[in-house]
Amino acid sequence: MGLQLSIVTPERELFTGEVDSVLAPGMDGEMGILPRHAPLIAALKEGVLIARQGEEEMVFAVHGGYMQVLPDRVIVLADVAERAEEIDIERAEAARRRAEELLKKEPPPEMRAEAIAALRRSLVRLRVARRRRYRIESERPESSD
């Protein structure tokens, strides 16, 4: 028995498919979900969500939201979410620098909140994208054999 995972944002259904396990960024720390989990609704913070399917690992960046867990289903309702493959590292890096510079200049409160949110988003994106890159690099020797 697998888990039916859907990752949904207001703008699109990012992913639907069968997976073996899900590792989600809960408010109080990482939460691992396996099939037959008790019904659960959990608030998420921005972070990395990993879905495993056999040997394969899918990595997503999730920016806030919540997750509904049923014995055979996991539904992630995120404000914004993207696959690791979609993340443009250079853009995320540029966004991080922009946000950091803005924060140094002590902006007015509402701009400050925006900047902090932007900074968090870019940091999560970078983490997700790097994780994927390491994986690709570590897999490389095997594939070249």
Binding site: G26, M27, D28, M31, A38, P39, L40, I41, A42, A43, L44, G64, G65, Y66, Q68, L70, L77, D79
Partner: peptide, 21 residues
């Protein structure tokens, strides 16, 4: 039908995550 959810960290926090969104 499944009403017996566990709320993580607690129902209030979840509700205040869900409602503004």
């Amino acid at each position: 039908p499944v009403a017996d959810y566990i709320y993580e960290p607690d129902p209030e926090t979840v509700l205040s995550t869900v409602l503004p969104r």
